[in-house]
Design a protein around this nucleic acid. Structure first.
Lengths: 229, 229
DNA sequence: CGGTGTGAAAGTTTTCACAGCG
DNA sequence: CGCTGTGAAAACTTTCACACCG
């Protein structure tokens, strides 16, 4: 590429960026990837906003937290913006990830293509069940949980997925933290208690339905193209 | 029970309740259920808040949106509050749910116990694949998508889960809406465009990891007992 | 006392509106 | 022109602080 106006790589990371902004960043990236794949070269904040159900101002403000990426009168170049978003989110390089718990859900996640698409690779799964340990699922080895610390250290793993039943989630979380993991996605329906330097994202499948139940019950006719859940 | 101070059943549903409040309601309920199972009779806003990483004031304000549930000097009675939360969220009765897409993830969700625990029952799954149609997974019948409208109507289904690849998610969403579903949980990594009266919750597994990637990269040492992610 | 319920204050996020630029 | 980037205003959420209750 010849020109590159918007100087990326300065990712502030100092001034406190609201969580909601980062959540939308992922949605912008997802949409941009689709647009680029569809052959679109540039996009305006208004177009991108409309696609996702946000205002043009919000799109610009969100991007403004991280730098200047647009061209007045033109909009944003998809390829540049994608690259910038990935730099900001940290997904321009591959993240090796570990997964603990190889039940129904765990096995399904081992086969999920979406992770690789965003540059995440599950390098090893862990369980206690002797009938599972030693095997391979979708090319991913299943090891005994006792080997977790070794693998995390050797492979320099920073992110982990907890996919065990609720009763064992806290103990698994403690093991991940002890092994040196810095961020956890928890699929178990329990509140985890973690040291403050560990990042946590929780996904409770029943709670997602519960939120719908409320919305549908108290028929608050709202929403629309509404994204991001 | 003899006495019941907090008069439930008035669920305002008129005054606009912030989404964030409803999200926390589900966390309160989850925690209360655990506490009750552990034999705890009452709990204060401060205790409940501490368990979830919120302030006592926030817990009280959140509950205040829906009525008065507490006893000054005592706190809240777990059993009463659980019942009230369920009334508010609409999960004191069973919700029949349909699921479209019986791939890896879909099959895993058909086996997920957590749904039933919060009163959701997947009554039927749907797919196009003739090798899957006609079968049963975990006691749940797998039918052809063409039968979706009939089942939704006969069983009075109001909620649906989309668990198909991104390319087919929009068409499936349209079918669910046409069949009369009012709320959708979308697991496909695409933005759905829906009529404004349809409620949508989206879960993008790769995005959850992306959010962690950002948090860990820009080491914003924050979080704590942090819940709900 | 110990704890709720709730106005008022503080803080945060979104929207507005417009200068400036290619 | 069309569209970005951004201060200032508006809207919303959280925290504070305290009256009141058993």
């Amino acid at each position: 590429m010849a020109e590159s106006h918007p100087q990326p790589g300065d990712v502030p990371s100092d001034s406190t960026v609201p969580k909601a902004v980062v959540a939308r960043l992922s949605l912008y990236l997802r949409e941009l990837q689709r647009l680029e794949a569809a052959g679109q070269q540039t996009i305006s904040s208004a177009q991108l906003g409309t696609l996702l159900g946000f205002s043009d101002a919000q799109v610009r403000k969100d991007l403004g937290f991280f730098g200047q990426f647009g061209y007045p009168g033109v909009g944003y170049r998809c390829d540049e913006l994608i690259r910038a978003m990935r730099d900001i989110l940290g997904t321009n390089h591959v993240w090796p990830v570990v997964m603990v718990g190889v039940g129904n859900l765990g096995q399904a996640l081992l086969g999920y293509r979406g992770f690789a698409r965003q540059n995440f690779r599950i390098v090893s799964a862990f369980d206690c069940d002797p009938t599972k340990v030693g095997g391979t699922i979708n090319g991913i080895p299943v090891r005994h949980v006792d080997q977790l610390p070794d693998v995390v250290r050797c492979e320099q793993i920073r992110l982990g997925l907890i996919v065990v039943p609720g009763e064992r989630a806290q103990e698994v979380a403690d093991k991940l933290v002890a092994a040196g993991v810095e961020g956890i996605v928890n699929f178990a329906p329990v509140t985890l208690s973690l040291p403050p330097h560990i990042q946590l994202v929780s996904v409770d499948l029943a709670i997602e339905l519960e939120q719908l139940s409320f919305a549908v019950t108290s028929k608050l006719h709202a929403a629309a193209v509404q994204p991001g859940g």
